[in-house]
Design a protein around this nucleic acid. Sequence first.
DNA 1: TACCAGGTAAAAA
DNA 2: TTTTTACATGGT
Length: 289
Amino acid sequence: MKRRTIRLEGPYDLALSLKLQSSFSAEDGADPAVFRAGLRVCGKAAMARAVQKAHGQPMVEVSTDSRHPDEAAAAVEWMLFSSLDLKPFYRAVSGHPVLGKIVKKYHGVKPLRPQTLFEMLVVAVTEQQISMAAARKIRGRVVERFGEAAGDLPVFPAPRALARASIEDLMACGLSRRKAEYIQDLAQKVENGSFDPEGLRDLDDGEVRREVESLRGFGRWSADYLLVRGLGRADVVPVDDLGVRDVVGRYLGDGKRMGAEDVKKALEPLAPFRGLAVYYLFAESRLGG
DNA sequence: TACCAGGTAAAAA
DNA sequence: TTTTTACATGGT
């Protein structure tokens, strides 16, 4: 095991961030204070583990079995979103009647990101239209079949593995024929170099939308979903997203699901941190009760 | 059993 | 141009 230390910007509570993260994806209410992930580092499956030495301390210690520990640490740094400084967000919403209280309650919570934007794009396709629970099961089969393992941790399939998968094999995981085609198309474009998901990191929000929406199977929702969940863009909100409409209605409206236009209006005062604000509303709905 | 779940492209009107 | 429809699985 090699070790590396990552510096964190601003307030950060890793354990609370992980707890929220697992509330979105957990099957078995495991509630780890330690970050563990199967990664692909320089093409090789590897595991990484990260702990915040003391509560609130701006350092995380990463251990990995990768032969490229610096690259593994960089991946963890990306996934933990260490570059995000929450202070300007907290300042901006401290006087807000709802968010002001919530950001105090979940002080230090950051949204975590998948290792790659390729993975995030595939996740987006699987989550179109069907429930998160159904999507998770289907994705589990895709990873089981086409991914690798780093010890007990699954490693998301490389683009090449999904580019070579047949439509029938993808459908056997539970994907619709359409979604199997979307994923195979995407993976083949990445594999042959005609689309570079990781290059989206350098583009502004509008350019990312244009690039993503040019892919078959990726509409407005998927582009916004990638921006906010894959890249962590602080002001992006998929306003037609069912989960967003529910949670904004619950905390900033009359308690019922809102229409997309009302969501826009309700979030206006929270610019330019509307995406982060919605993430904190999810925190309250998942952890606060 | 039916219906809904963090949409999208393609067909039909 | 705008409106409908098919799609796959899992939870309730």
